[in-house]
Design a protein around this nucleic acid. Structure first.
Lengths: 334, 334
DNA sequence: CAAAAACATAAAAACGTTTGCATTTACCTG
DNA sequence: CAGGTAAATGCAAACGTTTTTATGTTTTTG
């Protein structure tokens, strides 16, 4: 490989002059700068990033830790992160944890070996002392999508509020027996959505009944399955309901499938509302009513929050940024 | 930050001994190894990756360059790449080109600054001298998904064959007026699929007629739109057809929408077959018949092909690996 | 025109590792 | 128990940069 010394020799100057000519961190005569630039071009010299990084203690790299890029909410997030990172001259390392805390820890270790300048993470579970530790060490880190139970720099939506609004909409449009596919209650975000569901019912004077609460805490990769099973379960118990609030679009899709399988129509017999607004949620039949998360923006904002943390090492109180979600009504609700 | 010297001091040995104790690259007495390990734990020492990389000329990092992670075929590929990479101790840097050659070049430059050991790429376009150049420089690179017109290490499917089989299936099941949404003909993979379509018709004695060839070369991010517009276009010209071969599932979804919008039924009136087998293609209505690409495996195989290129710097002829695709018949064909 | 000031460049140290070589220590063997 | 061998460890160089310090060369100015 061609080094700065080769360039120096070719241009007839010292390595330090080459460095200055390229970085602009010092005076260099126009004529020599030209000689250097010519030599650089001639030899196709590219500075060794590792050496630079070693010297400066920075890598201009950030780690993005998410449960699974195949979960369709994450590509948009990843894209937002990458686009923003690129704008700041950073590159992104992608890490999938499969919802497993140990994998998450392992990746953090790996990333931390001083080569990423910061981390953006959608935590795998509610066990996150390792994240607290990182934060205490003043390592730049931003939590996204899944809020945690300690104060941290985070970019999320108000899951409680969003769920409350969605369920309130169902109530307002005449539904009274509203089932929920509740999601993994280990995760704060599903607890919040569940809480929103209950409060909306209570505020409307509708009792929260156990038999309408469906879904389990499994984390199957077949994400529609939970919704499908949950609704099938209701049918098999002959429980009546006129609407379903699914805590993700994928669960909603599974729910719709189950409803159709039992010969009922969406939304004529049963309304279904989802959560996430995946790109293809408008493409299914019927197009899904859902809560839209600004996933791309969450990714972008996370980077915008992270960079200052990396730059000014001034310690500031962590802040949570609440992004706006939006209720999108399509054809799966009447 | 804590360095190897700190550990050495704490353990009462020299830095070289610490290095050997940790890497195993030399003899070290059991008792001293223990002292070192204790010191490491006590100080929470983590070797500086940059320094290691600088010394060894390797970063244990690979770059993955794809058009767009939001295009639903790529998450599976990315996951395959990451899982395999992890097995070999490598990490993955994700780069989205948005189908833009300049962005692609820019990323390659960036990655090449000696810090990725190899690159896996789904090229943005048919302009790829920069990839040829990389290959000639003996830089480890593997092409995936989108074949190129020069001999390279690649992991792809036989797009011609797969398209041929899909169209042949339509013919065998009684369709005669088969329209195609042809995809961007700048890209070899769509040319191949188009060629398969034509050959299948010819081999069955069915003429290839211009009016049934639809779709344009745009690369809109709204990937269903091309299929939607293409089919609408046919209807508006009053062209009759009894089947559609869409060159991607997303185009198929758009096509189905257009067909439904015009009051026809899939598959009773018009059959539709797609290409890719996206995770949600079985979830739409009707569940889509399609050609399955082993996307996850393509990612995995690409890494398995790349690692030897990185390790043995022995120059071997590039080889193309053809993965098997599979025709999956669901409910969108009769 | 000489001395000071400003500018341009070179030399050397530093970043945190790994590793070849030299040295010390421990262990055998005759 | 001396001498030889093997094992364990330390020293120093090297990886490719950037930056501080030192040196040499202009230019300015009284």
């Amino acid at each position: 490989m061609v080094t700065i010394k080769d360039v120096a020799k070719k241009a007839g100057v010292s390595p330090s002059t080459v460095s200055r000519a390229l970085s602009g961190n010092g005076p260099v005569k126009e004529s020599t700068r030209k000689k250097v630039l010519d030599a650089v071009k001639l030899l196709d010299y590219r500075p060794n990033f590792l050496a630079q990084g070693l010297k400066e203690g920075k890598t201009k790299t950030i780690g993005l830790i998410i449960p699974n890029i195949r979960n369709p909410i994450y590509p948009a997030v990843a894209r937002g992160v990458e686009d923003a990172a690129k704008k700041f001259g950073y590159t992104v390392i992608l890490c999938n944890t499969d919802e497993d805390v140990d994998t998450e820890k392992e990746y953090i270790q790996k990333l931390q070996k001083r080569w990423v300048d910061g981390i953006i993470i959608a935590p795998a579970s509610n066990e996150n002392e390792h994240i607290v530790k990182l934060q205490n060490e003043n390592f730049p880190i931003v939590v996204i999508v899944r809020n945690v139970d300690f104060l941290s720099n985070a970019v999320i939506i108000d899951n409680y509020r969003a769920a409350y609004d969605a369920v309130s909409y169902l109530i307002r449009t005449g539904h009274r027996r509203i089932a929920i596919v509740k999601g993994n209650q280990q995760l704060a975000l599903y607890r919040e959505r569940f809480r929103g569901y209950k409060q909306a019912l209570l505020d409307a004077g509708i009792p929260v009944v156990e038999e309408l609460i469906a879904g389990d805490d499994s984390d199957s990769v077949q994400w529609t399955l939970d919704g499908y099973n949950a609704i099938n379960c209701l049918f098999s118990q002959n429980i009546e309901f006129d609407a379903v609030f699914a805590t993700t679009d994928l669960r909603a899709i599974g729910a719709i499938r189950a409803i159709k399988d039992h010969g009922y129509k969406v939304p004529e017999d049963i309304s279904v509302i989802g959560f996430d607004n995946l790109e293809f949620s408008s493409l299914i039949d019927p197009p899904l009513s859902t809560v839209s998360q600004p996933l791309y923006d969450i990714g972008m904002r996370a980077v915008n929050k992270l960079i200052p943390l990396i730059d000014n090492k001034t310690v500031t109180e962590p802040t949570i940024e609440i992004m706006l979600s939006e209720l999108i009504i399509r054809k799966s609700t009447k």
